[in-house]
Amino acid sequence: MADAAGRVIRRTEYILLAATAILFVVGLMAGDTFFFRLATESLIFGGLALAVDLLLGIVGLLSLGQALYFGFGAYVSALLLKEVAPSFWLATGAVLAASAVVGYLSSFIALRSKGVYFALITFGLAQVAAKTVYNTRELGASDGIIGIPIVVIGTPFGGLDTANAPVFFLVTLGVIALLYGLTKYLLATPMGGIWHAVRANEARLPFIGFDTLGPKRAAFTLAAMIAAVSGALYPMLRGFVSPELLYFSTSGNAVVTVVLGGVGTLIGPLFGSALLTGLRSVIGTWTEHHQILIGLIFVAVVVLAPRGIVGIAIERAKRRAGEQI
């Protein structure tokens, strides 16, 4: 990635980290619970947006059904925590393994097509899964599953209580930072290079001797795993899961978050998620027409800053450095 872009992304990372640290201290001093939990939720949905950005912004595949893997992670985690054992490591470990399998298998269906057909297939897969969960009595059907116990995360340094809002916020921050770091690391590998190349011109890659399907499959599986692990944290935060987590509104919101934050920047989606979750909470209390306002903001961003908020900062930095946009 070009230098100017890298610098802007690095700077955004620092700004987000500093803002988080300041707000964390302020929140601790105020003895707050709600805003910590809201921030935790924005990180969880930020993880889902990160998965969408990996596909859309890096590989160039628009997934309209990423909520399928998010919901899958949430349901597997919920069932394990409730029926087997309230263990953080069991739940996240099992979700990681299971989502790798599910993501790999569904890549055979989804990657048969490209462009708008890929978007439709991912959308369709998620709808099928959502309807199935909605009609399965064993999974709580339309009511979802409640009564997921509060988890105490066992670590060598003692237990971390997920009911403690600041503690669970830090845990979530750690998990999402790990997922972010891993994705960023992979982008620097040869595989990451091919991902960028697929987005730029997939047809030309075979001519220079590269297979594209394998790397695409890897990206798809990785995106499924990121979404699922983020989803696995949801029942630990809220104590329930419901089929709405698999609905298109969840997938669609993730795409909106990515576009708002900055497609292909990876940090943009996390930034966008924090922004949108905060805005929704404030505007929702203020007026019942919050959907219209959020929609207007989205339209404004798409028209004025089509590359998103982080994207526009990158654009400006590149112009200043005299690089090609």
Binding site: S142, D143, G144, I146, G147, R238, G239, F240, S242, P243, E244
Partner: peptide, 8 residues
């Protein structure tokens, strides 16, 4: 679903 989740 909302009633159950909010009840909890």
């Amino acid at each position: 679903g909302s009633t159950l989740a909010v009840g909890q």
